[in-house]
């Protein structure tokens, strides 16, 4: 095998920078991923409008119509009777997070089909960090949508205690992380965008309706013990309750534990799924030894 002589100036080319990334580099990377997600969201005005209209329709129409039918007794964290609109507001916040979390996973499937996902996955940063950053970006967008909804609801007369708007932030963050992590896990097993609609129907609607978002659990238990059991094992139930209690400056510790646990579980699943050496992304890969 002959080798060509290299020009002198090129012979000195050596590997580029070595050494690990520092905290500053990680922050730059995180900022870039969050900024991109926000820019994409701002460029898709229809997405923002639809994300706002959906819960408002429930608040303005559904809640007004069912106010008389679906009475709510005094249950924690409420200390008095509350309007039905007040009761379903935490559920509607959860609904925004649920749809947004699934939307961000939809964008990952889209990115993968379009090839954009590759630019993320070939970054030299650890893949777990890239996925967590992507999740944080999705959660930031989700929380912005929730607050936009809460502002409109406030003008509609649906008000939480003033400090509740601050207390609810960590609950929204944690619930958003859980739902984004679930979405990310789902996106790893979905091959094509067309398959995503089915998953949405199997995840979003059952997840939303089999929860205390629209009616309290005791009412569900009275109506159907089986449905009640389903609600109990539904992680979204705990996200809604965590948000509901946080509005009143309280912590529902069971909900906090379940949501935190599910977040870790779904996140670990997503990281494994997107790991080229272990994950579901490798299902199409080598299955045997050398031929």
């Amino acid at each position: 095998m002959s080798t060509s002589a290299m020009p002198q100036k090129l012979a000195s080319v050596t590997p580029v920078r070595s050494g690990a990334f520092g905290l500053r580099h990680y922050l730059v990377c995180l900022k870039g991923i969050v900024l991109r997600e926000c820019l994409r969201f701002l460029h898709q005005r229809e997405r923002f409008i639809s994300s706002l209209v959906r819960p408002l329709v429930w608040l303005f129409i559904f809640a007004a119509g069912f106010r008389q039918v679906l009475g709510v007794s005094i249950i924690p964290p409420y200390k008095t009777y509350v309007l039905y609109e007040v009761y379903i507001t935490p559920g509607l916040c959860g609904m925004i997070l649920l749809f947004s979390g699934m939307q961000s996973s939809l964008s990952m499937v889209y990115d993968r089909e379009m090839g954009n996902m590759r630019t993320l996955l070939v970054s030299p940063f650890p893949r777990w960090f890239l996925l967590v950053s992507k999740m944080l970006a999705g959660v930031a967008v989700s929380i912005a949508q929730v607050y936009a909804f809460l502002i409109v609801a406030w003008f509609w007369g649906v008000k939480a205690p003033p400090l509740g708007y601050l207390f609810v932030l960590p609950a929204l963050f944690l619930s958003g992380m859980m739902l984004c992590a679930l979405g990310m896990l789902l996106s790893s097993v979905i091959k094509q965008l067309e398959n995503f609609a089915g998953i949405m129907n199997f995840v979003i609607f059952p997840g939303y309706f089999a929860s205390p978002a629209l009616y309290p659990l005791w009412r569900i238990q009275e109506a159907s013990p089986l449905l009640y059991k389903i609600c109990i094992v539904n992680p979204f139930t705990y996200a809604v309750e965590l948000i509901r209690f946080a509005f009143y400056g309280q912590v529902d510790w069971v909900s906090l534990g379940v949501v935190a646990g599910c977040t870790l579980l779904f996140l670990a699943g997503a990281i494994i799924a997107y790991d080229p050496s272990r994950g579901l992304m490798t299902r199409k890969q080598d299955t045997g030894g050398n031929a």
């Binding site: 500053r24 730059v28 991109r36 994409r40 460029h43 379009m114 090839g115 954009n116 590759r118 890239l130």
Partner: peptide, 25 residues
Amino acid sequence: ARTLDLDLSVYQNLSYHASLHGIGG
């Protein structure tokens, strides 16, 4: 395959990639 984000500007695409390598500002 083309991997630019079509909704973003040229600068935003490049800036995003720079951040994926820890290069900012």
